[in-house]
């Protein structure tokens, strides 16, 4: 067990309570969290290998009778640890709104159409280089009830496992240049600008497929780095 998980790294994360995002007010702990050492229970984690997925699970445009409406895109990148080493065999799941900004969920009552050819869920497992790839359509922006005229920037939800249960990460991938960034309390719950920008994919012209799809690159860095002699137990 050579990986360690420095707690200082978590400074990049939003605080539990971020009042601009109203739902955090009653859903964040009010008492101090109890500091504890990492034991075997935290340093291990579930492993979902390639048997957990099937061919095509990473292509959200081919799950129905026809093709979904919207702008077809490739989203790809690497899952990396804090030393920027690849995290192989890591389950990556995503879910997103359709091109109109509507989720396939009965709770979503945004008056925009559902797309009978788009559910909006996908999964894959990283290869030995930590690489993953999805084919999907660009999700639309949508309104939400947080405050007057609140709109979420276009985003894709990601769920990643990484090397241990400590490295478990749920995040959102945003698209470059979104005009809604300054107004979104969820995006801005990450107060450090550099950290915030790590949630924004980069437009990847090189891997765009001519006459077919644009491409975005999104590298995901999860907790965990090699223990060095300077690290004291």
């Amino acid at each position: 067990m050579s990986l360690i998980y420095p707690k200082e790294s978590l400074s990049a994360f939003p605080k539990h309570l971020s009042p601009g995002y109203k739902s955090t007010v009653k859903r964040s702990p009010s008492k101090p969290l109890i500091l504890m050492p990492h034991t075997l229970s935290e340093l291990t984690g579930p492993v979902y290998g390639h048997d957990a997925i099937q061919d095509g699970d990473n292509d959200l445009t081919r799950q129905h009778a026809g093709e979904p409406l919207g702008e077809r895109i490739i989203v790809h990148g690497h899952v990396l640890d804090e030393d920027r080493r690849p995290v192989p065999d890591s389950l990556v799941e995503l879910w997103q709104a359709n091109a109109c900004g509507r989720y396939v969920h009965i709770v979503d009552q945004h008056p925009a159409p559902l797309d009978p050819n788009f559910t909006g869920a996908g999964r894959t497992v990283t290869d030995k280089n930590g690489y993953y790839k999805f084919i999907t359509i660009k999700p639309g922006a949508y309104p939400w009830g947080n405050h007057h005229n609140a709109w979420r920037p276009n985003h894709i939800h990601f769920s990643v496992f990484g090397p241990s249960f400590l490295s478990r990460l749920v995040t959102q991938m945003y698209f470059p240049g979104d005009p809604l960034f300054p107004f979104d309390p969820i995006f801005n719950s990450v107060t450090d600008e550099k950290a915030r920008n790590r949630m924004i994919a980069t437009f990847d012209m090189e891997n765009t497929v001519p006459d077919w799809a644009l491409c975005y690159r999104f590298d995901i860095v999860v907790r965990g780095r090699e223990k060095t002699p300077e690290d004291i137990d």
Binding site: A12, W95, G120, H157, T171, V221
Partner: peptide, 21 residues
């Protein structure tokens, strides 16, 4: 400074992606 990808909320609509059954 940490280089982690920050966490974001799972939101209200995760069920069809993460717990579809």
């Amino acid at each position: 400074m940490s280089e982690l990808t920050p966490s974001q909320t799972v939101g209200p609509y995760y069920a069809y992606g993460l717990t579809p059954e």
